[in-house]
């Protein structure tokens, strides 16, 4: 450092580098006051929760792992997965239709979104549940002509399928708008560059536009998935035995209503937490090429914070502040 190495002609000889700045950091007394206040409030809350006789924490624990609750939890997960797959596939299809130059396709998509976004999902679930009353038999054949084969609606579409249809088709309408916004966010020059290379419309969409749209689509998609996980509780209204229903049943039978609901809530919290973590890593994956430095993972942040706290190294870069 002290020896001048840079002797390029035209560049003045480097002077000795001044020593690193070692300033006294700004103190934040407000933070300590806030921490104290919150600590007291949290202690009060915890105390109230633990000592409240109505909450029956031992029962919460039992209900949490009760077989019907576990079964309900599994069904909730499966239902979330199936409804989201239907919603995402349907949403992408609807978005592409909506942006199509074919006026019939974009009109149909518009109508679909109008109907399914415009009515409550609970009402739609009831409709799918009672569809058997409107169309008792579903058949394949020539339109307005003879029918070759037909099935009974209620045996063709079991209750689980009713739930998937009701939630998934509703989700598709919302997801379509998310995908459409994502596609529109991609610069037009991208499609032009792809076209000039000889890619067809379909290839351009799949290879160039959608991957870039994902960056815009993923955050609300994660939101939708988390929302869907909780919306599945609505199907308890059409007597499908999922998590909420399982909790309610135990509550009704044993009169431990609130402990059962708390146990169920913990399951929901657990899964929404897992989904949030998943969302973070997916966002990170699709952020490739856009951020010079990818956002650090929570683990990296913790490591950075611990390092700065323990060393208090001056001039060191910190990931973020409180």
């Amino acid at each position: 450092m002290t020896t001048p190495q840079d002797t390029t002609p035209g560049v003045p000889p480097t002077r000795e580098r001044p020593e690193d700045i070692r300033a006294v950091p700004v103190r934040h007394p407000g933070r300590w006051v806030a921490i104290a206040c919150i600590a007291v409030l949290a202690a009060m809350f915890l105390h109230a929760m633990i000592t409240n006789p109505v909450l029956h924490w031992d029962v919460v624990g039992q209900v949490f792992t009760y077989p019907t609750v576990i079964q309900g939890m599994e069904k909730t997960l499966l239902l979330t997965l199936c409804a989201m797959v239907l919603g995402i596939v349907g949403g992408i299809l609807l978005a592409v239709m909506r942006l199509s130059r074919n006026p019939v396709l974009s009109g149909v998509s518009w109508l679909y979104i109008w109907v399914f976004r415009g009515t409550p999902v609970l009402v739609q679930l009831f409709f799918w549940n009672f569809m058997g009353a409107i169309f008792p038999r579903i058949g394949l054949g020539i339109p307005f002509g003879p029918t070759w084969v037909s099935w009974d609606y209620n045996s063709l579409v079991p209750l689980f399928m009713v739930c998937v249809l009701g939630l998934g088709l509703n989700e598709a309408a919302y997801f379509a708008e998310i995908v459409r916004a994502g596609i529109l966010s991609v610069d037009e020059g991208q499609a032009e560059a792809a076209a000039s290379l000889g890619l067809t419309h379909a290839q351009t969409l799949r290879r160039i536009v959608l991957p870039q749209a994902m960056r815009v689509i993923i955050p609300p998609a994660g939101n939708e998935t988390i929302s869907m996980l909780k919306t599945t509780s609505l199907v308890s209204a059409i007597a499908f035995e999922e998590l909420t229903r399982a909790g309610q049943d135990i509550g009704a039978r044993t009169l431990y209503i609130i402990p059962s609901l708390i146990a169920v809530s913990f399951w929901y919290l657990l899964f929404t937490s897992v989904l949030s973590i998943g969302q973070f890593y997916i966002e990170r994956h699709y952020g490739r090429g856009t951020n010079r430095a990818l956002p650090s993972t929570p683990w990296q942040k913790v490591k950075a914070n611990v390092l700065t706290l323990s060393l208090r190294n001056p001039g060191g870069t910190t990931g973020g502040s409180l």
């Binding site: 610069d187 020059g189 991208q190 032009e192 560059a193 792809a194 076209a195 000039s196 290379l197 000889g198 890619l199 067809t200 290879r207 160039i208 991957p211 870039q212 699709y286 490739r288 090429g289 856009t290």
Partner: peptide, 29 residues
């Protein structure tokens, strides 16, 4: 699309595909 294969184009604002590396940009077509 078939005819455009024979006509290369370079844009003022580059229009590289930002989600692909330089090499993948060149390989794509």
């Amino acid at each position: 699309a078939l005819k455009r294969r024979d006509i290369g184009m370079v844009f003022q604002r580059f229009n590289l595909f930002p989600h692909l590396t330089a090499l993948e940009n060149v390989m794509e077509a």
